[in-house]
Write a protein that binds this DNA or RNA. Structure first.
Length: 556
RNA sequence: GCGCCUGUAGCUCAGUUGGAUAGAGCAACUGACUUCUAAUCAGUAGGUCGGGGGUUCGAAUCCUCCCGGGCGCGCCA
């Protein structure tokens, strides 16, 4: 729909070029006006040209409009000049009706997009340490990462969803020690709990499972002796829990990349070697450093400590090198905002490995404050006092939880009040959207009973769309046709929340229409045309909800 | 001290990358169920876009300086 306007404007500019005495035509930008009454599309081109042409914007607008009317494509009902020099376009109704027909025939361009052109893109998200259950913040990352992946996929990218497992290093070791200590305690041994150990109940649970499975096998062993298998068991069980939590939240990953594997396969050393070959490593104070200042970082970063151990950053270098080696055209990392200080470092690494700047993108997910009755819930993983994602999902439900996460842009803080999410469930925006879908489904059930078979008839009969005359019907089609633009915008900006808002608007236009006009009536032709319109709404609602990972129920 | 995010209606948030009279939902108030689902609809009210200055035809949006909130600045992971 947007393309038609742009094309017309480009043609007009082309023929005005000589008259204006400019070499190339200006870039054409069109927007959807805030108020539907202004038109379907608007351009501020005349105002932007005023500086170059040294003429008042309204004069320029007049020249453009008269050129446009010479072209008279017949697409537009009206082209007006308004305000300081906006040009407003209004499509004629047949254009809308034809587009609706195209949507129902399954015109892909109205549902998806090919801006991705098959490029391979990797989206890494959640990537929580497997040392405890997922909390609500991880849930937000999961919801956004999942929706974004879906959107990019629909936009023609080949997407891989990946979870990076931090299964090497001190934290995992601490997990093992904590479980070991609980195991000993459960079997009656008096043993000190590690000072910084994980104190949550889940640690006890893991210890119990070890007890059930292996009995007192490790009872007489020190941690030095049995730390390996105990730690491995603990972390695998933890990882399994995480995977299940995500699955029950409706988020599935394509690939789980282990940090430990990178070490064991020598990838870390290799990655550093290739930096060395580029002359980007140096030795100082017995440690190895990456010259990240070369790429705009504040200071150079240690990759190998003086005790010979790799830093965490070294694994990340190797991990991102690994991503590049796997042939991705673009890399998107979704991190908690508390990791933002890490961004420039990774950016430097990827630049060192020759990835163009615009191919790497970090989406920071701001903190979630969990509230109950308006009071903040204190969260501390170490102390074990926190509410898990699972608890929230079980209490509030996955659809509401996801929808709330996706109704805000990622980089703003979010208050998640469990009681508000639950108590207002009847007024919750997610139901507003789902209800529109359920209502349409209900209409189709009735249509079925009345012999207006939805699927069959709507496809086989030559339905006369010209009976769709009501303003609300045209508004509804107009809204439907905005979907590809919204969707593309969401993909380009990596902002799933745009879809969430759009769906609410679409549902709103539909509810309003529903209240005012009856779909099924004695007039068969009209009924069929209106059913077709509803079908169109249903298709878009379903598609949008699918991208968000939210269910579309036939009944509510 | 430096860096990132943030401040928009009583509350929770959008604002199409600089455009027209700043928008939703909740809460408040008025109305609408004999109809394909009232989890809905129609309407009223609610604003110094944190504050000052600047850039220009035009600023919630860009620059700058203040004020407030969150987070981060290890040879930790």
């Amino acid at each position: 729909m947007k393309q038609e306007v742009i094309k017309s404007l480009q043609m007009a500019f082309e023929s005005l070029k000589t008259q204006w005495g400019i070499d190339s035509i200006p870039e054409v930008e069109v927007e959807i006006p805030r108020d539907e009454k202004m038109g379907d599309f608007a351009t501020a081109a005349a105002m932007k040209l005023t500086k170059i042409l040294k003429k008042p914007p309204r004069d320029i607008a007049h020249e453009i409009v008269s050129k446009l009317s010479e072209q008279s494509s017949g697409l537009f009902e009206s082209i007006d000049i308004a305000g300081p020099g906006f040009i407003n376009f209004r499509f004629n109704k047949d254009f809308f009706r034809n587009q609706l027909k195209a949507l129902l025939k399954g015109d892909e361009a109205l549902l998806s997009s090919d801006i991705g052109k098959g490029q391979k893109i990797q989206v890494e998200f959640v990537s929580a340490n497997p040392t405890g259950p997922l909390h609500i913040g991880h849930g937000r990352g999961a919801a956004v990462g999942n929706a974004l992946s879906n959107i990019l996929e629909a936009a023609g990218y080949e997407v891989e969803r990946e979870f990076y497992i931090n299964d090497a290093g001190l934290q995992i070791n601490l997990l093992g020690q904590s479980v070991y200590a609980r195991y000993q305690q459960q079997l009656g041994n008096v043993i000190d709990f590690p000072e910084d150990g994980y104190k949550g109940e889940y640690i006890e649970a893991i210890a119990e499972v070890i007890n059930e499975k292996y009995g007192n096998k490790y009872l007489d062993q020190t941690f030095d002796e049995c730390g390996g298998p105990v730690t491995e068991f603990a972390y695998k069980m933890m990882l399994e829990n995480i995977e299940n939590d995500l699955k029950d939240f409706g988020v599935i990953f394509d690939r789980w990349q282990s940090e430990k594997d990178l070490h064991e396969n020598g990838m870390v050393g290799k990655a550093l070697d290739s930096l060395k070959d580029k002359g980007l490593l140096f030795e100082e104070g017995g440690a190895s450093w990456f010259r990240s200042t070369e790429f705009g970082d504040d200071k150079d970063r240690v990759v190998k400590k003086k005790d010979g151990e790799f830093t965490y950053f070294a694994s990340d270098i190797s991990y991102h090198k690994n991503k590049l080696d796997r042939g991705f055209d673009g890399i998107i990392d979704i991190w908690g905002a508390d990791h933002h200080g890490y961004m420039q470092r990774i950016r430097s690494v990827l630049e060192a490995f020759d990835l163009p700047k615009d191919k790497f993108r970090v989406i920071l997910i701001q903190m979630v404050s969990l509230l109950r009755h308006g009071e903040p819930v204190q969260m501390s993983k170490r102390a074990g006092a926190f509410i898990t994602l699972r608890e929230v999902v079980e209490e509030v439900g996955p659809d509401i939880t996801k929808f709330i996460f996706l109704t805000r842009k990622a980089d703003s803080h979010l208050d998640f009040d469990i009681d508000v999410a639950k108590e207002q469930s009847a007024e919750n925006p997610v139901f507003y959207v789902q209800y529109a879908f359920a209502r349409i489904s209900s209409i189709f059930r009735l249509a079925e009973e009345n012999g207006l078979n939805s699927a069959g008839n709507l496809n086989n009969h030559d339905i006369d769309f010209s009976v769709l005359q009501e303003d609300e019907e045209i508004s509804l089609i107009r809204k439907l046709l905005q979907y590809p633009m919204v969707f593309e915008g969401a993909a380009i900006a990596c902002e799933p929340h745009r879809i969430t808002y759009y769906l609410q608007e679409l549902a709103g236009v539909f509810h309003s229409y529903y209240y005012k006009h009856r779909v099924i009536s004695d007039d068969i032709q009209l009924s069929l045309a209106r059913l077709s319109l509803c079908k169109g709404v249903k298709i878009i609602l379903e598609q949008g909800l699918k991208l968000l990972g939210v269910s579309a129920p036939e009944k509510m």
